[in-house]
Amino acid sequence: MPITSKYSDQKIETILAEIAAVFDKHDASPELVLMIAGNIVTNVLNQNIAENQRKAIAEKFAQALMSSIESTIH
């Protein structure tokens, strides 16, 4: 069953395009992009999620990430 987001595809695509433009501007390697993305996730969890919920949300995030890449592997 697909996950339904409360955010429009257009909003998500617009933000992703803007972020990608910043990475392109700085000629960021894939490794740097992943490091920055990980730092963003860590900061969001630490600054916006109650300490007793962080691990569970991080695990759900990791599972969603794995699902998104596994669906592209044939």
Rank of each mutant, 00 (worst) to 15 (best):
M1N: 14
M1S: 15
M1G: 15
P2G: 01
P2N: 04
P2Q: 07
P2E: 14
P2H: 05
I3T: 08
I3Q: 09
I3M: 03
T4N: 05
T4F: 11
T4Q: 12
S5I: 12
K6D: 11
K6N: 12
K6S: 14
K6W: 07
K6Q: 13
K6C: 14
Y7D: 04
Y7S: 04
Y7L: 15
Y7W: 08
S8D: 00
D9T: 12
Q10I: 11
K11D: 01
K11V: 13
I12G: 03
T14V: 11
T14F: 09
I15D: 04
I15R: 07
I15M: 07
I15T: 11
L16S: 10
L16D: 15
L16F: 14
E18K: 10
I19Q: 03
I19G: 02
I19A: 05
A20I: 06
A20H: 09
A20S: 14
A21N: 03
V22E: 12
F23V: 03
F23R: 00
F23M: 04
D24Q: 08
D24T: 07
H26F: 05
H26T: 00
D27W: 02
D27Q: 07
A28I: 04
S29C: 01
S29W: 00
P30F: 01
P30R: 03
P30K: 08
P30D: 10
E31G: 00
E31D: 00
L32I: 04
V33A: 05
V33D: 01
L34R: 07
L34K: 06
L34I: 01
M35N: 11
M35I: 01
A37Q: 04
A37E: 11
A37T: 01
G38E: 08
N39V: 13
N39R: 14
N39G: 10
I40P: 03
I40W: 12
V41Q: 05
T42D: 14
T42W: 02
N43V: 10
N43S: 11
V44M: 09
V44E: 08
L45N: 10
L45T: 05
N46R: 02
Q47I: 03
Q47T: 10
Q47D: 09
Q47P: 00
Q47V: 01
Q47A: 06
Q47K: 14
N48R: 07
N48M: 02
N48T: 05
I49Q: 01
A50D: 12
A50Y: 10
A50R: 12
E51M: 07
N52C: 03
N52M: 12
N52G: 02
N52P: 02
Q53M: 09
R54K: 15
R54Q: 15
R54T: 08
K55H: 10
K55W: 14
K55Y: 14
K55G: 06
A56R: 01
A56Q: 06
A56D: 10
I57Q: 10
A58N: 03
A58K: 03
K60R: 15
K60T: 09
K60P: 05
K60S: 14
F61T: 13
F61G: 04
A62D: 11
Q63F: 08
Q63W: 09
A64I: 01
A64W: 11
L65N: 07
M66F: 05
S67D: 11
S67R: 15
S68T: 03
I69W: 14
I69D: 12
E70L: 13
E70C: 03
E70P: 00
S71Y: 09
S71L: 13
T72G: 04
I73D: 13
I73N: 06
H74C: 07
H74Y: 07
